[in-house]
């Protein structure tokens, strides 16, 4: 079983809402790509959880989800995310020194649930990572579920889960800007 599929709901939101949600995701992606992580942090609610579940290829026909419900590469609350952002700024955070060149390409943006407080948004993404003075690069393909809290000042990210295609992580680490 893959991640749960969601019925198309394009009729349930106005083109304007769809446009605003997409523009928000694109702008957010630029903050990640350019490591403007302090500004990015300001887009998160303080009760956010970001999760990257483990994926395992299970026996064909099994009802069990491929995605673990209790095992994650990353399952972080706001405090943990803030710490990650803080350490990435340090020159001796070797995982990102030299810094990766990252580019999000986001597509298939669908709003799957609408409440008075929030939109639940699903998107597909290819995140390209180039590193150091080598021809090596990784592309991380994923589906991403985001809950956007609606507020007068705009959207805030209240929850996010990134479902990678890979069952074996094939990039050297999962740094925040790759999500």
């Amino acid at each position: 079983m893959r991640e749960s599929t969601t019925p198309p709901r394009s009729d349930s939101v106005s083109p304007d809402t769809q446009h605003r949600v997409e523009q928000f995701l694109y702008a957010e992606a630029e903050l990640l790509d350019t490591f403007q992580l302090k500004d990015w942090l300001a887009l998160l609610t303080e009760d956010i959880m970001i999760k990257v579940p483990i994926r395992t290829y299970t026996h064909p026909g099994t009802e069990q989800s491929e995605f673990s419900e209790n095992g994650y590469y990353l399952r972080d609350n706001y405090d943990m995310i803030r710490e990650r952002v803080g350490r990435l700024k340090k020159s001796y955070a070797w995982s990102e020194n030299p810094r990766s060149r990252i580019r999000h390409v986001i597509g298939n943006v669908r709003i799957t649930e609408v409440t008075e407080e929030s939109y639940t948004v699903t998107n597909n993404q290819h995140v390209y990572r180039s590193y150091g003075d080598t021809p090596e690069n990784d592309t991380l393909s994923a589906r991403r579920d985001t809950v956007l809290q609606r507020g007068e000042a705009g959207f805030k990210i209240a929850d996010r889960t990134v479902f990678f295609e890979d069952s074996i992580v094939s990039t050297k680490n999962i740094t925040l800007p790759l999500l």
Binding site: Y73, L74, R87, A93, W94, K172, N173, I174
Partner: peptide
């Protein structure tokens, strides 16, 4: 882990 704040370095 590969996602970990510690090991990635």
């Amino acid at each position: 882990s590969a996602g970990g704040a510690f090991e990635s370095d």
